[in-house]
Design a binder for these strands. Structure first.
Length: 422
RNA sequence: GUGGAUAUAGCUCAACUUGGUAGAGCACCAGAUUGUGGUUCUGGCUGUUGCGGGUUCAAAUCCCGUUAUCCACCCCA
């Protein structure tokens, strides 16, 4: 294969039959989110760079090295690396009356310039929600319940939810300090990465994969010890609401979320069916300041490529496939029949019937094309049929054939498509 | 950004170790007494061996570079 016809590194074409799975997933997602009172919000793929640098955190890897940034007309622009900041940029331009109680969802492509690997594309797709109701453990629990509901609709009702808190935003510096102090005596034993993380982002030490680091982390006091009583109580209430909602979860004090805007409730849903990139979805409560307004909300994002990956790994993708529409393939023998078939095809389409035809060729080759396309029927006309005002309708599965008047075709076919499976 | 593996027909792969200008299956196209697909039989088409350079009389094969893919680190959904 030549490099000229490949897509850009880390970006993929999604074609049939897999694209049918995507369409179905998106349809189910919209159905579920609408039931929870969410409206779709479509924000641009291109945003000002500052929208993300200010909200995700200047020091996060996403901002520092993964964004596609470019300059146009003297403005620093970028391709969105995630969905929340763009939604909040939109919200910041509204009045409080419009953002209070807002519930938005989005589905679309995101871009991060990372090295591609299993479950990690440079253009990937997320489905997420943002809820701007007044902060409450009840809202957090409801949003998590929505996410679990959505995964269940896709056939992933058995994923494990890990839940944790980052504490109120005012106390996060204390948490970092506390952890740093607790780690300090054993800093020399930590891996090279973790020694760097101690200064840059202590929380990341908690989910290091290195064995000796994990052993050290296991002996640390839980990070909630460094939080306020109110922060611990908030988490406790979220847990109680989740119990009431029937959502199962596991409290995991080592769960870390990467972006700076999170506060209080955070969660993540992973699947062992995936490789190293096993996080399927994540979410939490956040606070960010944009355009002079401070916005608080709860939201989540789901990586659609990863959901597809889990479904395929577990062999569940077929459960979401819907049967393709029944297709009628028009076969014409001779130029006049082809011409009249073209007009007939448009009449049938106008009646809601899916139709195709070949531009010519022998009857054999046209029938072969009909078969290859998976057409349910072949509709055959030659000079004899034209003269009599009829058409031969062949059932491609049963192999049976009958002759019908042309003016009855639309009603007969429509009835058979709607009726019981043939 | 770092590391490992890989790159041959539309697809899955063989030939590479022991250099001698590529082959199979599937797919595709066409026929099997001139109006019927899917099965069968017969025949046919397909490649600047990812790209660039080097060694050699000769490179898919050996060497260097480069690009891409896969996997892992890192990070995240």
């Amino acid at each position: 294969m030549s490099s000229a016809n490949q897509p850009v590194q880390g970006m993929s074409d999604i074609a049939a039959p897999e694209v049918h799975l995507w369409q179905r997933m998106e349809q189910l997602a919209r159905d579920v989110m609408v039931r929870y009172g969410f409206e779709e919000l479509r924000t641009p793929v291109v945003e000002f760079e500052a929208v993300f640098t200010r909200s995700l955190g200047e020091t996060t890897d996403v901002v520092q090295k993964e964004m596609y940034v470019f300059e146009k007309g003297g403005r620093r622009l970028c391709l969105r690396p995630e969905g929340t900041a763009g939604v909040m940029r939109y919200a910041a331009g509204l009045g409080a009356a419009e953002t209070d109680g807002a519930r938005w969802y989005y589905i679309g492509p995101m871009f991060r310039s990372e090295r591609p690997q299993a479950g990690r594309k440079r253009q990937f797709h997320q489905c997420g929600v943002e809820c701007l109701e007044p902060p409450s453990p009840l809202v957090d629990a409801e949003i998590l319940a929505l996410q679990v509901d959505l995964l269940r609709a896709w056939g992933l009702g058995d994923c494990e939810v890990r839940l944790n808190t980052r504490g109120e935003s005012g106390g996060q510096a204390q948490v970092a300090e506390g952890l740093r102090a607790a780690l300090a005596p054993r800093a020399a034993e930590l891996c090279e990465d973790c020694r760097r993380r101690m200064a840059a982002n202590v929380l990341r030490v908690l989910d290091c994969k290195n064995e000796t680091c994990r052993a050290i982390v296991a002996e640390l006091p839980p990070s909630t010890d460094f939080m306020s009583e109110a922060s611990r109580a908030y988490l406790q209430q979220v847990a109680e609401h989740l119990d009431a909602l029937g959502v199962s979860y596991r409290l995991d004090p080592l769960l870390v979320r990467g972006l700076d805007y999170y506060e209080h409730t955070v969660w993540e849903i992973a699947s062992t069916a995936l490789g190293a990139q096993n996080a399927v979805a994540g979410g939490g409560r956040y606070r960010m300041r944009l355009g002079g307004r401070e916005l608080v909300g709860t939201g989540f994002a789901i990586g659609l490529e990863r959901v597809v990956g889990v479904l395929q790994a577990l062999g569940r993708e077929n459960a979401l496939q819907t049967p393709p529409p029944k297709l009628v393939w028009l076969v014409g023998l001779g130029d006049e029949a082809l011409r009249q078939n073209l007009a007939l095809m448009q009449q049938l389409r106008a009646a809601g019937i899916a139709c195709r035809m070949a531009s010519g060729g022998s009857m054999k080759s046209q029938m072969r094309a009909a078969n290859k396309s998976g057409a349910a029927w072949a509709l055959i006309r030659g000079d004899d049929e034209l003269a009599q005002g009829v058409a031969a309708l062949k059932d491609m599965v049963a192999g049976t054939q009958e002759t019908l008047p042309v003016d009855q075709l639309a009603t007969v076919l429509a009835a058979r498509i709607a009726g019981p499976a043939s």
